[in-house]
Nucleic acid binder design. Sequence first.
DNA 1: CAATAAAATTAAAACGTTTTAAATAAAGGA
DNA 2: TCCTTTATTTAAAACGTTTTAATTTTATTG
Lengths: 359, 359
Amino acid sequence: MTTIHDVAKQAGVSIGTVSNVLNKTNKVAPDTAVRVMEAVQALNYVPNTMAKGLKTKKTRNIGILAEDISAFSSGDIINGIWKYAEEHDYAVNLCNLIVNNRVSSVSGSIYQELEQTASFQKSVEKSLGLLLASRVDGIIYIGVHPRDVGHILPSFDVPIVYVYSYTSKDDYCVNYDDFQGAKLAVEYLAEMGHKRIALLSGSIDSVASHKRLMGYQETLMKHHLAFRPEYICTGNWLYEDGYRNCVRLLDLSEPPTAIFSMSDLMAYGALNACLDRQLRVPEDISIHGFDGLEHSAYTHPALTTVQLPLQEMGRKSMETLLHVINHEQPDSRSILLPCSHVVRKTVGKCSSPIYTAHH
Amino acid sequence: MTTIHDVAKQAGVSIGTVSNVLNKTNKVAPDTAVRVMEAVQALNYVPNTMAKGLKTKKTRNIGILAEDISAFSSGDIINGIWKYAEEHDYAVNLCNLIVNNRVSSVSGSIYQELEQTASFQKSVEKSLGLLLASRVDGIIYIGVHPRDVGHILPSFDVPIVYVYSYTSKDDYCVNYDDFQGAKLAVEYLAEMGHKRIALLSGSIDSVASHKRLMGYQETLMKHHLAFRPEYICTGNWLYEDGYRNCVRLLDLSEPPTAIFSMSDLMAYGALNACLDRQLRVPEDISIHGFDGLEHSAYTHPALTTVQLPLQEMGRKSMETLLHVINHEQPDSRSILLPCSHVVRKTVGKCSSPIYTAHH
DNA sequence: CAATAAAATTAAAACGTTTTAAATAAAGGA
DNA sequence: TCCTTTATTTAAAACGTTTTAATTTTATTG
């Protein structure tokens, strides 16, 4: 590997001069500058980031701490982060946290959660150590579902911004707008004439669930629709929860004409439960998702859903982090990005509910 | 940040000794060792990777060059890489290549492809520069579809292994076994009594398509089934291709009783095309996918498919890279991992084809 | 107990940069 | 022409580690 010394010798100058032309830190005579650049080209010189970082105490590296890199959301968020990082000549250090397969925070029993938490904490510590050792300039933490992670990370001196996760302290965080997203969905359902709108909720202790529930309730009120406790089902975001709860709803003496699911996965479950009962979607019952998974375009019929601004979130979180790194005050500590609405085929106009006494 | 000097002073030894106990490079007296370790604990010392790397010329960092980090396969592959890396105390530097949204190599017209190639090359160079500047010990290249990438990367002196991508030169690469995977699918179809098995192929110039076609043909021959050119449809891996081609197959005077799709996405298209025609799957027609997307469990009916060993591929590629870095000869330059079969609901026993004159 | 061998420790150089202060060269004015 | 100012350039120190060679301490042996 060629060093700055090689370049200096080739150009017939001192290394200080080479450094100056490369970083534009000091004025250097135009003709020496071109001589240096030619040498750089000729020798294919690329500065050693480590030596540079050692001196400047800035690595131009940021760390990503992802709870689950295989989660549907991670790819797009990281994509957004990466784009912004590349545009600003930052490199990205990736750390994954979930070591076990596909057991994300949304899974199973309390015991399992606890057990997980211990190994999870260990994983966090190890990854954090890796990042700290690399002396990253900042860290972005990506959750798998918005929830409180404030307690997870010990406080230290590198700036951190949380994305797709809520935190109790006044940290920097960027999320999508759960409340607005939920309103988008329920509003649409109401506009289509539905009066009996059921809710497939995510896990009850999640901040996201709570906010979306607020959006649901508020929109119901706005349209003077009754809030029926029996229409509220709690699940764990997953397919099976959607299926199971949809079956329960369908068995009600007065089943809903529309279902708002807080996750696309649960919406798939609900859709299939309806299909298994020979119900037609959307003629007999409407289903509305939330997430905007790529796959939702391919269900049959294609799922009407709320699109999370994943890439934008990634982008915005990197932008915020850069502000913090450069000691510029960002606009706000907590950024909320709006969801968009993608209308497809699973929601239709409410026909008179013909199947009230279905079973 | 505390340095090795702080630790040395605290423990009352020289920095050389601290280094020795930390890296176990030289024997140090047991009691001094504990004194040093206590100091490390007390001061919360974490060695500066850059200073270390500067001296040792090893960073214990590897770079990932992913063609599209949002592609369905990337998450799992990176997951596999990361796990193995973490176990061996390597950090991971991530670079994404596709800058535009969702336009992967499988898209559109030739013009588009070309235009893409230019910006793509630029992206590759920039990312490679980033990685080289960071002095990563090695690089893993992740494709989005197995295809020839040998020409993409300039040759340089850091070791590289290709995963999910074929390369013409004798580089290190790890892939899944396209041939075996295709046989798995067609064999199963034949076992279920199907004699008219159509093929939804991926893009014709892809190595993967070619290998899977071989598997298809060989299995047909093994079962003494005729190879019918009109049963071969070429698409571009995507949903729409599957839909369109399935419609064409259904319009044949003697339509197939089973369809083997080379991608799950195309299988979704085929499934929906059948459903739109009021055909029952699998009673009237069977559909077999290839990829094992997470979502395939949620189609209605759930898709029978071939599962790619994505995580294992990631793991194996990291393992191979580590071997190369350590100058150990890996078992083989080209590693092929077997696919597995996941049987769900879209393939049934072949009934007498009742719908030959369907249209 | 002295001499030697072995064990443990240390001082100093090196890695490839940036940066500061000093030195040199060029330009301008009398 | 000589002095002063200004524009360039450079030498050397520093960043935090590893590593080599040298030194000090401890143990062994005749």
